[in-house]
């Protein structure tokens, strides 16, 4: 038994090395003084300084934040309502409706990107930050729905029933009893939707127009034009931001 376990443990550790090494190397080399070589030439913060001066980068971060805020607000409103609507009343075809609403999560993202692009072009809505935000809200609705619905399912229905027995109106019972209990899941889904929107590349790639470059699109164009230590520096920052956001989302969902 124990020999087998040593084997499993070393295979598992090797696996973790495979998962972490590229990211660690990437971050380490964001501090490398050499512009071209992959050998260590000394420590520098030069690449981070260059990032601060990059006007196009600042604009793309701003665009990404606008899209993420708008799409998260829309998706949270729609998703929370839909979760409550789905949970409260079993109606005929509920499973079909729920399945259909989750479909954006399972079809290849490129399908969503190109079909939205076709749609916007045919209804003559110029591609802009607005079209990007519409697309992001569409894939964020099922994300919010899944998380909030899972929480609703775990709530004890007798809590709200008790409030109603004590004379609360349906709205009061929801507002004063269910909503506070739902809050952690809502906050968690807000953070997750926000992160997914910030990170999205494919749907954005197809629905963005000139002047609506988001951060991932900007990184993409940087990567396309070649490896530079500035991309490493930007990556290092993004790695930390994503992890902080998702970590916060998980912590909230667990509460």
């Amino acid at each position: 038994m124990s020999r087998k376990h040593t084997w499993l443990l070393s295979a598992s550790v090797a696996n973790l090395v495979f998962l972490y090494a590229p990211i660690v190397v990437l971050i380490l080399f964001s501090f490398n003084a050499s512009r071209l070589s992959a050998t260590w030439q000394g420590f520098t913060l030069e690449w981070y300084r260059l990032l601060l001066e990059d006007e196009a980068l600042r604009l793309s971060v701003q665009n990404s934040l606008v899209v993420a805020v708008v799409s998260t607000v829309v998706a949270t409103g729609l998703g929370v309502c839909a979760a409550v609507g789905l949970e409260r009343h079993p109606f005929r075809g509920r499973e079909v409706v729920e399945g259909a609403m989750l479909l954006p999560l399972v079809i290849p993202e490129i399908m969503m990107g190109v079909s939205l692009m076709l749609f916007f072009l045919l209804v003559k809505l110029p591609l802009s930050l607005i079209t990007v935000a519409i697309g992001h809200a569409a894939f964020n609705v099922p994300i919010v729905l899944v998380i909030v619905r899972a929480r609703l399912r775990k709530l004890d229905p007798s809590l709200e029933e008790a409030a109603r027995d004590l004379g609360a109106t349906p709205w009061q019972a929801f507002r004063r009893v269910t909503w506070p209990l739902l809050m952690p899941a809502v906050a968690g889904s807000v953070l997750l939707a926000f992160t997914v929107s910030l990170d999205d590349f494919i749907v954005t790639f197809f629905t963005a127009g000139p002047g609506s470059t988001t951060l991932p699109l900007y990184v993409y164009s940087m990567v396309k034009s070649g490896v530079t230590p500035t991309i490493n520096a930007l990556s290092a920052i993004l790695v930390l931001v994503s992890m902080a956001l998702i970590g916060a989302s998980l912590a909230l969902q667990r509460r």
Binding site: L78, C81, A82, G85, H89, M101, M112, V141
Partner: peptide, 19 residues
């Protein structure tokens, strides 16, 4: 309360299923 589903259905209908 199942009317609460309508906004999300409308959004996904227009920006997912119609495309």
């Amino acid at each position: 309360s199942s009317l609460l589903l309508l906004p999300a259905l409308a959004w996904l209908g227009l920006f997912f299923f119609v495309p």
